[in-house]
Write a protein that binds this DNA or RNA. Structure first.
Lengths: 194, 194
DNA sequence: CTTCTTAGCGGACCGTCAGTCCGCTAAAGG
DNA sequence: CCTTTAGCGGACTGACGGTCCGCTAAGAAG
């Protein structure tokens, strides 16, 4: 698996330039007026380069989201508890939601753009699949009596750019994450299903 | 409030034709290739007429969704229990989710199109606001210790076209609704918050 | 350093979309 | 029947996501 012998220096530089340009536009301009033309222009590359690197608008957003959540993914897979393996599932879930909530609170515009771009088959997104699988496993271990596949989707569906924005105020910057965690606790502590 | 003296017969007929055309395209073609050009063509009217009547793509989708959920809205406001006033909040909530779930299961494509069209400020949609308010009130009455404003959004965020489609199989056509209800029950029966 | 190969670039181009505009038609009222 | 004007239709616009292909320059080889 160690092919792709050489990647031209230009290619690497352009990839980074495009990602940075997209991030800047998302931060500055809110969300959906981040057109690929604009991204290309700000990155100082041609439009074709953006599509060569990322395939589509959705691909670009996925790459951006993956970049922002890479650390969390690694911490979950092989980091120390309670995020990583070893802690009881309930604690791992709360730690994971804390991490994901932090990302969401700092990247609401990216979340919106990502939802928009991945309108169909959002569930096919690699990051989404990883998150769902992780929540699913933890929930299933803690509460096998519930429909955990659905609940994992339910917990993730809350990470919506507009909802995050609406819940995040300067005087209570972590209300979103706290409420998501409260919801998870409520689900975990609910009466066993008949 | 009985102004709008006359609405020309043509206008009424065209409004209905546009709504029906949009419904047909949603049913047949899945979701997002329901362009307003196509709707206008199928309805046998000009594009301008669509915009005169509904203002925008979002307006059309809102009108469609409102039409589909009008009966539920009325039943909630003044129908018999457990949907209408009189029953305890938990039962009313489950009845409401049952009704909304039924609508969602039969209109997944419309849900997707609506989400797409109302990408920004979905929370400003009249139907959404009504639903949120209703769930909020019921939850707040049953569980004032929780962040009910957030939880109402969380319950509604699950009514996503793709998620509904993914959960609805021929052999278990009401799995989505059942799981949503289970989730609500779990929230209602969770341990009181510290 | 020069030459050759080709990965990779750029931006003109395309089809489609939401939304606008305005001259015309025909519906309703007298 | 005539007048008024609500309402119609569809050409038009600007912007978008995505494609295409001729050219450039990066890197390997000598």
């Amino acid at each position: 698996m160690a092919e792709q012998r050489h990647e031209r220096a230009n290619a690497v530089r352009n990839r980074r330039a495009v990602l940075q340009a997209a991030e800047r536009l998302l931060e500055e301009g809110g969300d959906e007026h981040v057109s690929l033309d604009r991204v290309a222009a700000l990155a100082g590359v041609g439009k074709g380069t953006v599509f060569r690197r990322f395939g589509s608008r959705a691909g670009l957003m996925q790459a951006l989201l993956e970049e922002r959540s890479l650390a969390l993914r690694e911490a979950v897979a092989e980091g120390p508890p309670p995020l990583g393996p070893g802690a009881p599932p309930g604690e791992r879930l709360l730690a994971f939601l804390d991490g994901l909530g932090g990302i969401a609170e700092h990247n609401a515009a990216l979340l919106t753009a990502h939802e928009q771009a991945c309108a169909d088959d959002k569930q096919a997104d690699p990051s989404y699949m990883f998150w769902h699988r992780h929540i699913y496993d933890l929930l299933a271990e803690a509460r096998p009596d519930l429909d955990t596949e659905f609940l994992a989707h339910a917990l993730l569906s809350v990470f919506d750019g507009n909802l995050v924005r609406g819940m995040t105020r300067a005087d209570d910057p972590r209300r979103f994450t706290a409420s998501v965690q409260d919801m998870a606790v409520a689900l975990l502590t609910s009466a066993p299903r008949t």
